[in-house]
Deep mutational scan, measured.
Amino acid sequence: KELVLVLYDYQEKSPRELTVKKGDILTLLNSTNKDWWKIEVNGRQGFVPAAYLKKL
């Protein structure tokens, strides 16, 4: 499993997105899109802007 660090808080703006908090370490599911990465948070899957995340 690949992990990502959340660099900035992000509030979901659609049902396909997820809310994340700065400092969270989460599972990366897909990073093929350069702008939006798919991650998992508490069993939910969704997208967060790639600029808000850093691969560990």
Rank of each mutant, 00 (worst) to 15 (best):
D35L: 11
L28G: 01
K34V: 10
V48S: 01
E17P: 10
P49R: 04
R44V: 14
S14N: 14
Y52A: 14
L5A: 06
G43C: 06
F47K: 03
T19G: 06
I25H: 04
Y8N: 12
Y10D: 00
A51C: 08
N30D: 13
P49Q: 03
L5N: 02
Q11Y: 13
L26F: 09
A51H: 14
L18D: 01
E40W: 06
L18V: 12
E2Q: 11
P15S: 14
E12F: 09
Q45N: 10
E40P: 00
L29G: 02
N30E: 13
T19D: 04
D9M: 03
T27Q: 12
K55W: 06
W36T: 03
Q11F: 14
T27W: 13
K13P: 06
L7W: 02
W37I: 01
K55Q: 10
D35W: 13
Q45V: 15
T32P: 03
P49I: 02
D35I: 13
V20D: 00
V6T: 03
I25A: 02
D35F: 12
F47N: 05
R44A: 12
V41F: 15
D24A: 13
E17C: 05
V4W: 04
W37Q: 01
G43H: 09
L28T: 01
P49T: 01
K38W: 15
E40H: 04
L7R: 06
N33Y: 08
W37N: 01
L28R: 01
K21Q: 12
G23F: 04
V41K: 13
G46H: 05
K54Q: 10
W36F: 07
E40I: 08
E12A: 15
Y52M: 09
A51S: 14
E40S: 09
K54M: 13
N33E: 10
V41S: 13
V20L: 07
S31L: 04
A50L: 02
D9S: 10
Q45D: 11
L3H: 11
E12V: 13
D9N: 10
A51K: 13
V6G: 01
A50G: 05
P49C: 03
L56K: 04
T32Y: 11
A51Y: 10
G46L: 05
L5H: 04
K13W: 03
L5T: 06
V6N: 00
L53D: 00
W37F: 05
K21P: 01
T27P: 14
Y10E: 00
P49L: 03
N33K: 07
K13A: 13
T19A: 08
K22A: 14
L56A: 05
G43R: 06
K13V: 08
V48L: 10
Y52C: 06
S14V: 05
I39L: 13
G23N: 07
K55V: 11
E40D: 08
V41Y: 12
G23T: 01
A51R: 09
V6K: 00
L26E: 06
L56N: 03
R16I: 15
Y10W: 09
L28M: 04
Q45E: 14
A51L: 12
L53E: 00
K22H: 08
L28E: 01
K1Y: 15
S14W: 11
N33S: 13
G23S: 03
K38A: 10
L28F: 04
T19K: 07
A50F: 02
L28K: 01
A50M: 04
N30I: 09
V48P: 00
N42E: 13
D9Q: 03
